[in-house]
Amino acid sequence: MTDTKPVAVESSNNTLGIISLIAGIVGVLLFVCCPYISVVLGIVALICGILAYQQQQQYALAGIILGATSILLGIIFVIVGQALFRELMYVLEREMRF
């Protein structure tokens, strides 16, 4: 009986899990406009998510997945974002001309 008490107290504190989830959501939202911020927020979400997962907090897994996605999308956009965008705009302009 005494073993369950600390777990109950721990699970009521979801701060790290929520931080992870929110950093992940904002990171994924911002990957198109500012991939550098997205990578930083992704790292925050991933670290907080892993710490929260160890403490069995809510939203931890969602935070880890969103954080990893955010880092991946951010890195892809830092590398190919500008080139991809220029190509896309070029194709769109050509399509609209004809």
Partner: peptide, 19 residues
Amino acid sequence: PHHCLFNQATGLLCPACGG
């Protein structure tokens, strides 16, 4: 500064524009 692709594509501002 890295120019915002969202702003270039849509003309709208993102939350980090001007940051």
